[in-house]
């Protein structure tokens, strides 16, 4: 086994929360819920309201996952990295930002919005909020599902580069006015992976990887992160 899964968190149109504390939502035309800082962080994240929807979505799911793994509270910064897989990433923010550039002849481009036009930026927000000093980056593959990011995380842990990785997917979906659509699931889903679990009783099971890059959960091959969640929470 390379790592144990000790935390799961997600936001979908149907439900949100963590593996050990989640609730159903009233789906509204398949749309994701409007997220507020109070839902997860109380009043302790004043920047949350300034983030774009993609960042809010991913940051919320990461917070749920860390809470599930009892790693949301911290005193000293710790070596934990984050990898997010995404198809559209922050494309809606890109479009909003550039509309602002065009509307004002480039003179009033929003620096705050521009900073959100990188798909890895919310990982920096998560690093600041949770004191995570491992690398954070976004992975973009041709297929939705998130296993590429999971493979990279397991490869890093296998090489003893880092003891904790938070891995997942984040996709708010195709922007409404973007006419090129990829079939995919909207929402965010993150897992906390620990090489040396602090509390073994929190483990949902063990992850391994074959030399061909196939990911195994408790010895059985998994196809994507959604099926991994179903394996973690069979009921």
């Amino acid at each position: 086994m390379i790592a144990a899964i000790t935390g799961v968190g997600w936001v979908s149109p149907e439900s949100m929360g963590s593996g050990r504390d989640h609730r159903g939502l009233e789906p509204k035309d398949g749309k994701l819920p409007k997220l507020t800082s109070r839902m997860v962080f109380g009043d302790v994240l004043p920047r949350f309201g300034r983030l774009d929807e993609y960042s809010k979505l991913g940051l919320t799911a990461i917070a749920f996952a860390l809470k599930d793994a009892r790693q949301d509270k911290w005193g000293e910064k710790r070596p934990a990295g984050i990898i997010v897989s995404s198809i559209y990433g922050c494309l809606a923010t890109d479009m909003e930002y550039f509309k602002g550039v065009l509307a004002n002849g480039g003179n009033l481009a929003s620096p705050n919005l521009f900073a959100c036009t990188l798909p890895n930026i919310f990982l920096g927000e998560a690093a600041i909020h949770f004191g995570l000093t491992g690398p954070g980056f976004a992975v973009n593959g041709a297929q939705p599902g998130g296993t590429e990011g999971l493979c990279l995380a397991l490869s890093s842990m296998f090489l003893d580069e880092i003891p904790v990785m938070i891995v997942g997917t984040c996709d708010p979906g195709c922007p409404p006015l973007f006419p090129y659509r990829v079939e995919m699931t909207t929402g965010a889903l993150f897992f906390v992976l620990e090489k040396y679990p602090i509390d073994g009783s929190l483990s949902y099971g063990g992850l391994d990887m074959t030399r061909d890059g196939e990911v195994l959960f408790n010895g059985a091959q998994i196809q994507n992160l959604t099926t991994l969640l179903q394996e973690c929470l069979p009921d």
Partner: peptide, 25 residues
């Protein structure tokens, strides 16, 4: 889409993988 870079390179070179892109500023 950022994933179009590995697709472009893979098609151009006839690689046996579609590859992945990494975005870290």
């Amino acid at each position: 889409l950022l994933s179009s870079l590995p697709e472009l390179v893979s098609q151009k070179l006839g690689l046996g993988t579609t590859g992945i892109n990494i975005s870290a500023s």
